[in-house]
Amino acid sequence: MDMAPTPPPDGEPRWLNGDEQRVWRAYLQATTLLDDFLDRQLQRDAGMPHVYYGLLVQLSDAPRRRLRMTELAKIMKITRSRLSHAVARLEKSGWVRREDCPSDKRGQLAILTDEGFEVLARTAPGHVTAVRQSLFDRLTPEQQKSLGEIMTIVAEGLQPKEAGADLPWLR
């Protein structure tokens, strides 16, 4: 279902009403606090920001624990430049290594090392506890289901449809 906004006839923006404004501000506050909470937990327990943990998770789930850098950027919804910087930091820690792509000399693979996998395995229990404590334990099963449905609708509506879209992972 396409939910593209319909501008009012006079060209004025459709301002948020009071209820919408409260929902929007609650969303912003909750996501900011959740990101901060999870980031602090990962910094404390593993010395890495949340985005680095996400990179390690994606690589651990990939076949042979490896992904093309462009694919990893696309999955993580980050610029290739930001990914390259993050992978360089993860390489410095010994958690990831890069190799040239055998099928395409222009491409590179990010590969989760055994040490990186061990760090992820040690960090995951504390992280899942933090996720449960900060989100799931605060919601009823019905609220969890609703939240999942809502976030799926929002994410699907924001997925670029056109081939030439200005996508962060292509920059």
Rank of each mutant, 00 (worst) to 15 (best):
A86E: 04
G116C: 13
W15D: 15
K161N: 12
D19R: 15
F37L: 12
L28W: 10
W24F: 15
L83H: 01
Q29N: 09
G54T: 05
Q58V: 00
R138I: 06
R22P: 00
L167A: 14
L16K: 15
T152W: 06
V128S: 09
L90F: 02
V128G: 09
E91T: 11
P8D: 11
A155N: 07
A4Y: 11
E118F: 02
D104L: 12
S60I: 09
L170R: 15
Y27F: 14
E118Q: 12
K77R: 13
Y27K: 14
G148E: 01
P141C: 03
P141T: 05
E149Q: 11
R25A: 06
Q108F: 05
L28K: 10
H50I: 13
E115T: 09
R97F: 04
I78R: 02
E149K: 05
D100M: 10
T113C: 01
R122D: 08
A121F: 03
R122T: 03
A4F: 13
Y53M: 11
R82F: 02
L28V: 14
E142V: 10
V128M: 15
P102S: 13
V128F: 09
L90T: 00
R65M: 02
R89V: 01
Y53E: 06
Q143T: 05
T6S: 10
D137R: 12
E115R: 05
L109K: 00
E12T: 11
C101W: 06
M1F: 14
M69R: 06
T129R: 12
R68Y: 01
M48N: 06
S103Q: 12
R64M: 06
A163M: 14
G54R: 14
T123F: 03
G107A: 05
R106T: 02
R82C: 00
T6K: 14
P63Q: 07
D36Y: 14
W15I: 10
L167P: 10
G107H: 03
D10Q: 13
M48K: 10
W95G: 00
D166I: 15
R64E: 08
D104K: 08
V23F: 12
D10K: 08
L67M: 14
R65T: 06
P102D: 09
R138Y: 01
P49I: 08
K92E: 09
L167E: 14
P160Q: 15
K161H: 13
V131R: 06
P63R: 10
R132W: 06
D39V: 04
Y52D: 02
F117T: 04
G94L: 14
L158N: 14
V131P: 04
W24M: 13
H127C: 02
L67K: 03
A4M: 05
G148P: 01
T31I: 14
P63L: 01
L38Y: 12
Q159T: 11
D104T: 10
I111R: 09
L112P: 00
M3Q: 09
L83S: 04
A30H: 12
E118N: 01
L38N: 09
R122M: 08
R22V: 13
Y53P: 00
A124N: 02
L147K: 07
R171L: 15
E149S: 04
H127R: 07
